[in-house]
């Protein structure tokens, strides 16, 4: 196992976590809501792929995107719209409750043993063999991650709605006073999060085709940790944080001796604690900007 191989696998996993992080950070940016239920969008996408696995691949993926976007929009409309202006800790527990409810729904609907969603399993074949062995999915992860991130940046920087979202993220009240429609901005943020969740669902099912009720939860928790470690106040620091935790998990997993590999979560979370203690405002936040609490 050489170093370059480890790095490439790390970057690919990091790209997936970065996509989860974008979904979390956009919503946190516009409405200060930490959305634990984001993982349920990913799970819903996984189940959709499983149920549509007999369809043509393009149709199955399109349906997944539609389901994720509709569910994201519905979540905001039904539950989270009322949580604006509530303390972050309360919203955190509330979104956890929504996630918990949806997991119970998946459990009733699909059972605990899981559904198989091997729509794109062909991507597990190696594209490059020899010294380096790279599977197609690694390449697809990198390209998809890059394209979606670039698309988000373009949307935020080159369109009116993107400008409004950035304004709302900086100062929600002032943005509303200037005529930004709060409902539109927040709905758009949830729609983008839905698209990201669909992409993550498609990419993840290639590696783990078995979709269980907790399919999206572990990814989301780890990405959320990454987002906070990176710095939640800015989209790019949050995304980088998500990327970093995916990368660190992959690389640490390779670096640990195989009989110690079960302790990988301990190693990752120990690293998280150390980083939080050294840079509580965010690992990538500009110096002096992150820690401006009044304390």
């Amino acid at each position: 196992m050489n170093v370059l191989q480890t790095l490439i696998d790390g970057v690919a996993l990091g790209a997936v976590y970065a996509l989860v992080a974008v979904g979390l950070a956009l919503i946190f940016g516009v409405m200060r809501l930490i959305n634990f239920a984001h993982g349920e969008l990913i799970t819903a996408g996984g189940y959709t792929l499983a149920l549509a696995s007999a369809w043509p691949k393009a149709a199955a993926i399109a349906l997944t995107v539609v389901v994720c976007v509709v569910l994201a929009w519905a979540m905001e409309r039904i539950a989270f719209r009322r949580l604006r202006n509530v303390a972050p800790a309360t919203t955190l527990v509330a979104t956890f409750a929504v996630a918990f409810t949806l997991q119970a729904v998946w459990l009733i609907a699909f059972g605990p043993q899981g559904e198989s969603a091997d729509v794109l399993s062909g991507l597990n074949q190696t594209a490059v063999s020899g010294e380096l062995s790279i599977r197609w999915i690694t390449i697809v992860m990198l390209i998809t991650g890059g394209l979606l991130l670039a698309g988000t940046i373009l949307l935020l920087n080159r369109t009116t709605i993107g400008l409004q979202m950035r304004a709302a993220a900086t100062d929600f009240r002032a943005a509303r006073l200037l005529g930004v429609r709060a409902d539109t901005v927040i709905s758009v943020a949830f729609v983008i999060a839905g698209v990201m969740a669909a992409a993550v669902a498609v990419l993840l099912t290639v590696q783990r085709p078995l979709v269980t009720p907790t399919f999206g939860l572990q990814v989301t928790i780890l990405a959320l940790v990454g987002v906070v470690v990176g710095g939640m106040d800015r989209l790019w620091t949050a995304t980088l944080g998500g990327f970093a935790i995916g990368f660190a998990t992959s690389v640490l997993g390779e670096a640990l001796p195989s009989d110690q590999r079960v302790f990988l979560p301990s190693a990752v979370f120990l690293l998280v604690i150390v980083v939080l203690l050294l840079r509580p405002g965010g690992l990538f936040a500009p110096r002096g900007a992150g820690g401006v609490e009044r304390v």
């Binding site: 930490i34 959320l224 470690v229 998280v272 939080l276």
Partner: peptide, 12 residues
């Protein structure tokens, strides 16, 4: 730590 950083660190 305070706020979210405290939440995530205790989760760790």
């Amino acid at each position: 730590l305070s706020g979210l950083a405290a939440g995530i660190a205790t989760f760790a």
